[in-house]
Design a binder for these strands. Sequence first.
RNA 1: GCUCCGGUGGUGUAGUCCGGUCAAGCAUAUCGGCCUUUCGAGCCGACGACACGGGUCCAAAUCCCGUCCGGAGCACCA
Length: 486
Amino acid sequence: MQSVFPEWLEKKKVVEDKKLPDLPNVEIGKVVMRLAPSPSGPLHIGHARMAILNDEYVKRYKGKLILRIEDTNPANIMPEAYKMIEDDLKWLEVDYHEVVIQSDRFELYYDTMEKLISMEKAYVATTPTEVFKAKRQQSIPIDERNDSSEANLRRWEKMLNGDFKKGEAYAVIKTDLTHPNPAIRDFIAFRIIEIPHPLKGKKYRVYPMMNFSVAVDDHFLGLTHVIRGKDHLANTEKQKYIFNYFRWPLPFYLHYGKVSIENSILKTSIIKKGIANGDFTGWDDPRLGTLLAMKMRGINPRAIRRYWVETGIGDVDIKFSWENLYAFNKHIIDSESPRHFFVVNPIRLELLLDEVVKVKMPIFPKKENGLFREYEIKKGEIFIAQDDYNKFMGQEVRLKDLGNFKLERDKLKFIDNDLSKIKQGIPIIHWIQSDFVDYQIIKPDGATDKGILEKNALNYLGKVNQLERYGYANLINEKLGYYTHP
RNA sequence: GCUCCGGUGGUGUAGUCCGGUCAAGCAUAUCGGCCUUUCGAGCCGACGACACGGGUCCAAAUCCCGUCCGGAGCACCA
């Protein structure tokens, strides 16, 4: 015989959260993974995927997560970004256990390169790169490729000693010049950069390229699994050559698909320019796709996590869905969001009412915490939104929690307080009579809605409020809020 | 152009490796109902997809070939 509530038990199972697939070759407690951002700016919603996926797996397997900041191109570094990235990760609740900065590891890169040259797996060239590239395209080696390791080592020393200027020499890893994919053939591992590094100044002038430093660090940091975007597919192939030359064990690689994020500005170069010339208010401008902007708008980091976990690690290219993110966010914030009225483009009307009415509206209708907004409403002025005014002109409407009124050109005339009319489909609208402030809400598209907000809402600044029939908004200060989502 | 990778409803995903239980599951969106003094939330229901064409097979979303479409790499960026 079945239990009395069999369906109750079954429901629970169905609602279970979606999970990421298991990784191969895992040993609990031994997994090591990494986050490898470059400090060119703060993180955006797309970076969050990389961070969250790695974090989820490390937590599942009780492993170690390394934050490795890839600052090997001084031209592309924003000094403040080192800290901003860490702040962004903390906000996302991504728990890394160690921070490694690549610019601290030049000696390791140099040593490793020297070994490769000695092994005749790398060479140092002074041939113009245009020639190098052209020949490589035709599978033809440049002269230095066939030089002895001694000759290449001598050039390497000269390169490190500063005997070459920028552009005069570069170091190359041999792969396979006949590789069918030209993108995989011999690649540059070091170049000379003369502009100062924000952290190291002019101490170094020979800088590793990403493919070199990544391979070396992935090995010496003991990575077991690497998850990153599939734009790195060809890079992974290149990096494997270095692993193979040293017979280092390969980590397990996983490449997820490209994400295109519409209706959002993500490129740091564009954002920087926009902030500089005043188009954007800062890195947290609500029009941007940065995590700082998400935070400002009232997107909960757990919603972002759930979004990326549900999206998973597929290698198909996807379109980011704001709609889905908003839905997750709504689930998380709804019951915690105080309710208030915000009347956009208020129309002033005469309220015709015979007696004073006391209204008492719950701030948290989902909770029984006894918090209410209370007003004594009397005849006189009242405000409703212009849209409602236009839409319901001449009709009977219900002012929420107040009563039923006839909406006429310049007035609202009391009819009755018959609640059964709600069932009959009378439109319910929100309103404000007194105790309000002028307020602006900035939307993600840059538009601004102006209106009046219940003064009581100012007790909930810094929180996402549900402005009834308008949408959710994070109330930043007593004048201005950011729209979260509908 | 060369070389890779991929194409399941509007969106995201499960299933594809090891063909049958998939006349395709879930989430989100949309629509309808219930509930509710929000156009919110919750509950219930509906709608809606295996890119196309061949082939193999008793049987194909799953294997093979071709076409079309999308993406990536071919940097002294990461």
